[in-house]
Simulated scan of single mutants.
Amino acid sequence: MPSILMNLKVLLPFQIFLEKTDVLRIVAETREGSFGLLPQRLDCVAVLPPGILIYETESDGEVCVAVDEGVLVKAGENVLVSVRRALGGTNLGQLRNAVEQEFLVLDEHEQCIRSVMAKLEIGFLHRFASFQHE
């Protein structure tokens, strides 16, 4: 009986970063810790913080990818990982540094945008609450 393998696709907002077939196993990090995916595992969804995604194929061996925050969805033999940014590399230490320096630290522009959005949301909620009381 042939073994069932997984298909892995890492999606970025405007492109496909990685597409692999015949994946033996996948290890992903969540806020609760790392977990592994094997082909026969039940379908699942996981929220991914910035971290390292590891997958293994017979031809490539174990490969590490640094990923920014996103979502992992396993449906049957297909595993989709949708993240904001991703970096490939061979040195695990360099990938870990990239996660810490590029993905975990919000740049000044992004912090400013988040602050403005939070103020807009608060203003909307206050106006909506006052509208409900009229």
Rank of each mutant, 00 (worst) to 15 (best):
I4T: 13
G36V: 00
E56R: 06
T90W: 02
L95C: 04
L38I: 08
L120Q: 14
L53G: 01
L95E: 05
P13A: 08
P2S: 15
L37W: 08
D107L: 00
G36W: 00
V23L: 00
R127V: 13
E77K: 11
V71E: 10
V71I: 15
F103S: 00
P50M: 06
A98N: 12
E32M: 05
S130M: 14
A28N: 03
D107F: 01
Q15E: 15
D22K: 07
G61V: 08
S59T: 15
E29A: 09
H133S: 12
L12V: 04
R25M: 04
E62R: 08
V99C: 02
F14M: 12
E29W: 06
G33W: 04
V105I: 15
D22W: 04
C112S: 14
R96C: 04
V73K: 11
L95G: 02
E77R: 10
K119L: 14
R96D: 09
L92H: 08
A46Y: 02
R31L: 11
V105Q: 12
N78H: 10
A86Q: 07
L125C: 12
L37M: 06
V116T: 10
M117T: 13
I122E: 14
V67E: 08
V67A: 08
L18Q: 04
V81L: 00
F17Q: 06
E58F: 11
I26Y: 05
P50H: 05
F35C: 01
L42D: 13
K9I: 13
L120M: 14
F17Y: 13
S82F: 14
E110M: 11
M6N: 05
P2W: 12
V10P: 04
E62I: 07
A129N: 12
L11G: 10
L42N: 15
I52V: 02
K20G: 03
D107E: 06
E32Q: 11
F124M: 11
R25W: 03
C44P: 03
A46K: 02
V23N: 00
L120R: 12
E69R: 09
V79Q: 00
V27D: 07
S130D: 15
G76C: 01
A75M: 10
C64N: 15
P2E: 15
T21R: 13
L24Y: 08
I52E: 02
L12N: 04
I122Q: 14
A86P: 01
F131T: 14
G93S: 13
I52G: 00
G93P: 07
C44S: 13
G76M: 03
R41G: 06
A118I: 07
A28W: 03
R127K: 15
L72Y: 03
V116E: 15
R31F: 09
Q40T: 08
E58H: 10
I52L: 06
L80D: 12
Y55S: 03
G76Y: 02
Q40I: 05
L120G: 10
L104A: 07
L5Y: 11
E29N: 11
S34N: 09
L8H: 07
A28Q: 04
T21E: 13
